[in-house]
């Protein structure tokens, strides 16, 4: 509202406010219409922010959010000094960076392959099949993974046995677990991540390719010198946006796949928050960790969006 007022700085203040008032009255049905959504938003998004003050309190359920005693930064220092702090940060960053390194290049590869494919049937089939897993939940994914990885009857272990090897319990082995997480994520999400690159490829000016062909460039050179450079801004944008969510390592996936034997390599910030908060009822501690993650996430998202705007004139918001 301030912006609307200041736009008309030159006018006398009386007329100014009356025009603003007229503008508001003219849109009254819009405000009325949106009011339910705004109230919803205030309750479901802002009350949790208010509730997060228990990060600084010794939360006791009976005393409620505002009745529990203040304890300053104790919850935060408990977390930072805990044995798990390093492990959680390491695992979280390992998974989100690992997923980025695997799934963005494979999404680019898939997008370029789809774009260059002249066989319509093959292209459409792969495209449909590649986007599909994004719509399956991690519960369903777990079921599919069991059909592949189960030590007793999984496909992969049957192949291992066929070659005379010992079956591997992939999901309870600390060596294989991280790979299962990274590769199953790539299987599920690469196709979906490729959409934005496919769309960017569609926007390339065809005359560039014609010119290159006249100049005698072969297909490999066209990909190297035209296709990839043309979508470079989008690639940079996707990388930057992913950096903004680096502390989100994929709660639903890890939560479905992990178990006690692999906690040391599987536990991420979000799974730890869940166990501390809702299983051990250490609400204050869990909230402090959530807030810690939220603040860092806020800064990262903000910075990455600023960078995206700077590099490519676009942003998420």
């Amino acid at each position: 509202m301030a912006a609307t007022v200041s736009l008309r700085k030159g006018e006398p203040p009386g007329r100014n406010s009356s025009r603003l008032w007229r503008d508001i009255v003219r849109h009254k049905s819009i405000y009325l219409l949106a009011s339910v959504s705004i109230i919803y938003f205030a309750i479901f998004k802002y009350v949790p922010i208010w509730n997060s003050q228990i990060a600084f309190r010794d939360f006791q359920a009976l005393k409620g959010v505002t009745g529990s005693p203040w304890i300053g930064l104790k919850n935060f220092s408990d977390f930072v000094h805990s044995y798990y702090f390093g492990e959680l940060i390491r695992n979280t960053v390992m998974y989100s960076v690992g997923k980025m390194i695997i799934s963005i290049p494979s999404a680019i590869f898939l997008a370029v392959a789809l774009y260059e494919c002249r066989a319509n049937f093959l292209r459409k089939t792969v495209q449909t099949l590649a986007y599909l897993p994004h719509f399956l939940s991690w519960v369903i994914m777990y079921g599919i993974l069991m059909a592949l990885l189960s030590p007793s009857s999984g496909l992969l272990n049957d192949i291992i046995k066929l070659f005379g090897g010992e079956p591997i319990s992939f999901l309870t082995d600390t060596k294989s677990f991280p790979w299962i997480v990274l590769l199953s994520d790539a299987w599920k999400e690469s196709g979906w991540s490729a959409i934005i690159f496919v769309a960017a490829l569609m926007g390339i000016d065809p005359s560039l390719f014609e010119a290159a062909m006249v100049e005698g460039a072969n297909a490999w050179q066209r990909v190297r010198y035209i296709t990839l450079p043309s979508i470079k801004p989008v690639i940079v944008m996707v990388f930057l946006l992913r950096l903004g969510t680096i502390l989100d390592a994929g709660f639903n996936q890890i939560f479905m796949l992990y178990s006690l034997p692999v906690y040391s390599v599987a536990d991420i910030i979000d799974t730890w928050i869940y166990r501390q908060g809702l299983l051990e009822f250490r609400f204050g501690l869990a909230t402090a960790v959530g807030l810690f993650k939220g603040v860092i996430g806020f800064v990262l998202l903000f910075v990455s969006n600023k960078l995206v705007r700077k590099f490519s004139d676009t942003g998420l918001y």
Partner: peptide, 23 residues
């Protein structure tokens, strides 16, 4: 503009599981 900021802040700032659970 104000409405825009109002919906963007919670989007950027995720306070996590427990505060939502309490609500």
């Amino acid at each position: 503009k104000l409405l825009y900021v109002f919906i963007i802040i919670p989007y950027l700032f995720d306070v996590g599981l427990v505060p939502n659970y309490l609500l």
